[in-house]
Structure formats: structure tokens, C-alpha cells
Design a protein around this nucleic acid. Sequence first.
DNA 1: GGCTGGCACTCTATCGACCCGAGTGCTATT
DNA 2: AATAGCACTCGGGTCGATAGAGTGCCAGCC
Lengths: 340, 340
Amino acid sequence: MKERHEYILGEVVKAYLDTGKTVGSRMLSEQGEIGLSPASIRNAMADLERMGLLCSPHTSAGRKPTDDGIRYFVDSLMTVDSALEKRLIASAESNLHSGVELNKVLQQATEELTSLTRFAGLVSVHEPDFKRIKNIELVPISSEQILAVIISSEGEVQNRLVRRTDTMSDDKLREISSKISALLSQCNLKEARERLVKEIDQDRLKIRQLLEELKQWTENPTEGKTDLIFSGQSQLLKMPEFGVIETVRSLFAVFEEKEDLLKLVKEVERSEHGVKVFIGQEHALVDMEEISVVLSRYEGEGRMLGTLGVIGPKCMQYDRVLPIVDCTARWVSKMLGGSR
Amino acid sequence: MKERHEYILGEVVKAYLDTGKTVGSRMLSEQGEIGLSPASIRNAMADLERMGLLCSPHTSAGRKPTDDGIRYFVDSLMTVDSALEKRLIASAESNLHSGVELNKVLQQATEELTSLTRFAGLVSVHEPDFKRIKNIELVPISSEQILAVIISSEGEVQNRLVRRTDTMSDDKLREISSKISALLSQCNLKEARERLVKEIDQDRLKIRQLLEELKQWTENPTEGKTDLIFSGQSQLLKMPEFGVIETVRSLFAVFEEKEDLLKLVKEVERSEHGVKVFIGQEHALVDMEEISVVLSRYEGEGRMLGTLGVIGPKCMQYDRVLPIVDCTARWVSKMLGGSR
DNA sequence: GGCTGGCACTCTATCGACCCGAGTGCTATT
DNA sequence: AATAGCACTCGGGTCGATAGAGTGCCAGCC
């Protein structure tokens, strides 16, 4: 690709991201510092259209970049606003205080994302592996139910209601509780399951029911976890591209469904890169051709903890949004770094 | 108010709730079983307009009920669809199985609400009083942090990260854990705070930092609880009244803000009635004149646990929606009745 | 006296005609 | 190779006419 073409493409994309409208050759020639006549620009644009980087919705409507065009811009032509980046890092540093709970950090992160970008913020929490059991506590709740509180070595807490068919005194329960805790402490899920099976076979403790329910838990420990946090969804409604109700509906259907978004999240979790951008059709969400998603992984103590980012219109200012998402992810990582 | 007028008002409201459009005298005379000429109906309508129960947006546009008109209908004229009600109760009975966790029941309830009404479902969880502490468990997470797991006598579990400034062995921590648990067990928050203060003064255990953080917790135990669960928000977008983007935006702003909705929820929590309806301006949500909210309290084990209901267009079929909300609340109450 | 039919009037929503502006593609020219 | 000019195309906005739905009021009927 010739330098001339790259240059023109860059200008077209910039203008498009600025205004959200198609850009014509005259307007580009007049307002920019291109120094070329409209006709020359038209030639270049025609070439770019043949390459599949630009397209025009109809004959006399100017041109706008295709998804590929924006992709090329983001990957090769764009330079991020480094002054902005520095400011972001500085302001992030300023409110660094560790020892805060995961959920609060994430909540703050989404809000930060929406207030900086004016788009919808999105944070996913990676389903943790619940590697090792640290502690199990059985607490009597009523005559019929027991609450099992299971704590992982990573500080994850889960609780589960268990029916209490076998009648037993609270003292007895306490005794059983510490026995089970001793039995399963330091086990990973597989080991725990094995030990439970063995215990159920022997049936020494006469608490088959309870053990069965615990075993069930080892098979499906993270069932029903909430996994996606949103904020600022209503921000998106301000965008002109949502004049059509249809678009809005499918957007919010996506928010509710979550399935499809989770796919993207998983993809980012697996990827190597920090920030990943999905432009228009690239994310394969139905009826969301005008939407882009910018995501980044965040980490804590070496392991990947989840993904965060924003959802916004395709014509967003990527050179602003990318560093924002990047810095927020770094900030979250730092907050969680030493804390768990 | 004369019988004739009541009758006409009822028919107008019914027609309006059916179609969402203004209703004219001719149309009413032709399709209904009124047996009156358009002119007579017009006279009655003019009277009702003077009474403030009907209004017309402009001269030649037919009439529609005012908020007061709908209110009169709901309070005095409407009969609920008792066949529907019976079916609802039956289907609710059929999937009654107790011993399920609160959150799952509520999630299921909102989904039930949206699928039955095709509006947005809403469930609030009343901030629990966390009456008595049952158990406290301190679990070492890292060299810097301790996880405090606090279990209430109602089976509520909360956990909190605590910094670990005082170095101590895991054994020591276990010892302290059981001491604190013994100290605070069966206390309500006030008593717990007092005992903690006393303990901090004496400073026998040399764990001032830890105790301080626990004391802080007793002062604000439910901080940052999620309190409103939605579902089916995108359903609302299908309603014709959301042709205008403005309405949609303010609606979703309300969803995000939550503040205003919480006010309604609190009102329902305080009220005596089962189901409560807020029509149009009655709920005082800005820009939501075309929206109605139907809420009902639900209970468990005698005490009020929260509120659930739907948010939908003002012209919803109240005779369907009221029993649906009512039955769902009963169902939830039943599910939670014996379970905690 | 209350109900009804008729008539004149009002207001909105819709449709088609029309024009303007923005933009393109092609070709001749420098 | 870049530019200037020209004919052509298409979408959006404005304007006016029309149809339709509905009202209010009046005179007549039971």
C-alpha cells in the first residue's frame, strides 16, 4: 500500500470517528491539511474502496471506512494519545490503596470506565478454579437446614444450604464440622471428591446426606455465579446511532443474554495481548454491526483474574479509548496485585 | 358518580389498556356491547372529562383516561381474572421445593415475572438487619491479609478482608478466631460493638487492628449490598410507547440510578397492602409519565424480606398483571417460608 | 328529560411532488 | 500525475393537499 493511500485512509478514518458521518472528498480536501484537490483524493479513495477498506452506503453519500479499514487504522496507523495516558496513570496512582475488596475495586473500575469514555463499562470476573479448600464450616440455621461455608486457599468464600435430614445436636454438628474441615483441608476438588466418596462408603459418621451434598458441590462448585458487571448502559442511548429502536433493543438483549459477550471475554482471556479491540462485525454479535468492544485482561498475583473494557459505537475515538481501558486494567491489576 | 358514567369510564379504560390508543365515541359504540349511540357516549365522556378522569390530547383525537381515571378503574371497577389466578397458583404449587437458596428463588421469580407479563421484572432484597452473630471465622489468606467470615443466626454470610499488621502464626490466629467467635456469638450488633470496645480497651489479645476493623464492620454491616435485581429490561423496548429515544433513555437512567425506585420499594415495604400499583405520575419518577409500577411485598418466616414486581407501560392489563405479581409474591414467600 | 341523528368544524397523519446539496465518475487539460 | 470541469445520482427536507377520525352542538324523537 502506497504512502499516499495510507495517509488518505488515516484521514478518512479520523474524520469518520470524529463525526460518525460519511466523509466526502471535498470536505477532506478543504478542512484537513492534505494539500490535495478533491479529485485526487477521490482517486485514492476509489483505490481504497477496491481494496475493501472504504465503502459508500450509496452513490452520492461520501465514504466511510469498513471494519477492515478501521482495523488497519487501529493496528498500523494510530498513535495513542500519550499525554492522556500519562495523566491516566498519574491519577490512577493517586488513589491506590490496597486491601480493598475485589468487588469494590471492580465496581469502581466500571464506573471509571464509563465516566472516562462515556460508553458502557463492562467487567467480567473469571470463574476461579477454586483450587484448594482451606476450611469448611457447618453452621446450623434452622431445624431443617445447615449452612456450609467453604473457604478456598485463595480467599474465595462460597456458601451452600444443605438439608438436615439426620437429626443431630448442635454440639454434634460442631464436632462433625471440624472433622470434615480436617478431612478436606488442603484438598483440591478432585481429592476432596475422592475422600468424600471413601467416607460415604465407610459411613462412619452417619451423615451420608450431608456428605452427598458436599460431593455434589465438588462437582459443580461455581454454579450460578454472577460473572458480568455493567455500568453506564444508558450512556449508549445518547449516541446518535441509537436513533433506531431496533438497535437499542438488540443491544440490551445482548446485555441480558450475556452468552455472546462471554464468548468475547473468553477470547480475550485466552489471548496474549493486553488490550483487544473488536470492531463491528468482528465480534459476531447479531445486529451489532455499529458496535465495537474494547477489552483487556487484568490480573492479580500472577494469575489472570478477569476482563474489563467498554462497549461503544463503532465510531469511537480508539486512540483515547484504548489507553483508558489499558490503564484501568493496569490499575485494577495493581490494586489486586498484593491483596489476595 | 352515576352508574352510566362508571360504566363508560370502565369501557374507555379497558379499550385504552387494550390498544394503548385514544378511544373515540363511535368506536366504543360500535365494537362494545354498550348499546348507546356515539352521541350519548360523547355526553358521558364530556362529563368524565370535567371530573378529571378522562382527557383528550387535542380536539379531534378521542379520549384516554387520566392517571386518576385508571386509578379509579383499578381500585373500584376492575375484577381480576380469577381463572388466571387459579392457574398461576396451581403452576406455582407444582414447582414448590424448599431448601433453595434465596438468590436462586429471587432470580427465578424475576424471570417468571417477565415471562408472564412481558414487562421488566424487578426484585428488591430488603437490607437484612443482621440481627445476631452466630459465628465468626478468621482465615489467613496471605501474609498480609485475613479473611473474616461472619455468619448470622439467619444464615446470612458476610466476608471482609482485614489487614494483618500484627504478625502471628496460623495457630495463634486459629486460637484468636475461636476466642472472638465465643466473645461475639449470640450478640446483636450493638452488644458486639460494646464488647469489642471493651476488648480494645483492655487490649489483652494484642490484636487491636483486627478488633478495630471488626468494630467498623458492626457499624456498617451491609455496606455495598446489591439490592435490586432486574430482568427483561429489553422487553420494554418492544412497547410502542418507546418509539421515542428520550423515553428509553430516562427509563434506563432510572434503572441505573436505582435511588428513585428504592423509594417506591420502601413505600411498599412500609405499606399494609399486598400489591401496590403506581400509575403514571404517581410514582414521581421523572419523565416516566407513561410508565406504571406494580409491586408487592414478599415475606419469609413471618418477617418482611423484600419487594418484587414489574415495570411496564401505563396501559398494561392491570387485571392480568396484579394477580401475576400477587401470586409470584405468594410463591416466593412460600418458598422462603420454612427455609430460613 | 334524556337519547339520537346530523352537520360543521378541527386537528393529525400520510402521501406525493419538488428542490437543494453533497458527492461521485469520467474525461479533457495542464 | 494532478487538476478542473461537467453530467449524473441519490437522500433529506419542505410544502400542500387529502383522508380520516373525532368532537360539540343543535334540533328532533320517544
